[in-house]
């Protein structure tokens, strides 16, 4: 069953096409890889789904709700959470505070209760903390709860960002290069974590340059190049498609 349907999505910036006519669907409980050379439009696509960008044309349907009618701050309530390519953590705050920001959404009383620190407001803060702590425990990060986020090593910060996304209790998780900057061991463990999340019923879209990670955990892969979808299939078909190979080789030849 399709959880997310991208239909004919196009967006351009100052006349430059970043995405043109991209369509594909993501089924509930799938891990879908989104790959392509640099500048192919992968992050732009995630930014459209998470509503940071508004495409010029096309639709994004989540369970038949058109996400383009939803503002950025509304997507969490629709069950979408994401991480960012270049970390977007609340650097000065503690790990627990970072993660709790995502769980706050589910516990909101009114401003007066907050100003006078009424029981309702106290309960909210406590509940969000507890929920965040649970999420940290599930990822084995609870011993870091009181550390300042910006003091942690890069790989750990990436995991904190993942924890923050999960604390929003998403149905659909968007990961933008979660393995970048991780060592092979961390990267392998990340793969296991993502699989475990999928087994709990979370659907995942994964942008990643680490091909071994993508090939091992993704059921399906969508390949973008120059803003267009050039392939959609299983890891096997992707590996054999000459168009994909030439897109990557071309890009690498260009980079070098």
């Amino acid at each position: 069953m399709a959880l997310l349907a991208i239909e004919n999505l196009s967006i351009s910036f100052a006349g430059l096409k970043a995405l043109s006519g991209v369509s594909f669907t993501v089924n509930t409980g799938e891990i879908v890889g989104l790959i392509g050379p640099n500048g192919a439009g992968k992050t732009t696509l995630l930014n459209c789904i998470s509503r940071l960008y508004t495409p010029q044309s096309g639709r994004i349907l989540l369970n038949d709700v058109n996400l383009l009618d939803v503002p950025v701050h509304g997507i969490a309530a629709h069950g979408i959470a994401r991480t960012f390519q270049n970390l977007e953590l609340f650097g000065g705050a503690s790990v627990l505070e970072n993660v709790a920001v995502s769980s706050m959404r589910r516990f909101r009383s009114n401003l007066l209760a907050e100003l006078f620190w009424l029981p309702a407001a106290r309960r909210d803060v406590h509940a969000a903390r507890e929920a965040a702590l649970q999420t940290l425990k599930a990822l084995g990060l609870d011993h870091l709860a009181d550390q300042r986020t910006s003091d942690l090593p890069y790989g750990t910060q990436k995991m904190v960002e993942l924890a923050r996304a999960l604390a929003g209790q998403p149905k659909l998780l968007l990961l933008d290069e979660p393995a970048a900057g991780l060592n092979p061991d961390e990267s392998r463990r990340l793969g296991e974590t993502i699989r475990a999340l999928r087994d709990q019923g979370i659907t995942v879209i994964l942008i990643e340059h680490d091909m071994s990670l993508v090939m091992t955990i993704c059921e399906r892969i969508v390949v973008l190049d120059h803003g267009e979808k050039i392939h959609e299939g299983t890891p096997e078909t992707v590996r054999r498609d000459p168009a994909v190979i030439s897109a990557y080789l071309g890009a690498e030849a260009g980079d070098a």
């Binding site: 940071l52 950025v72 920001v101 706050m104 923050r164 929003g168």
Partner: peptide
């Protein structure tokens, strides 16, 4: 807390559901 999150990273705070 939501205000301070917005101050530190507006996009991350908004994506987390903060208006």
């Amino acid at each position: 807390r939501a205000l301070m999150a917005l101050k530190m990273s507006t996009v991350a705070a908004e994506v987390a559901g903060i208006n």
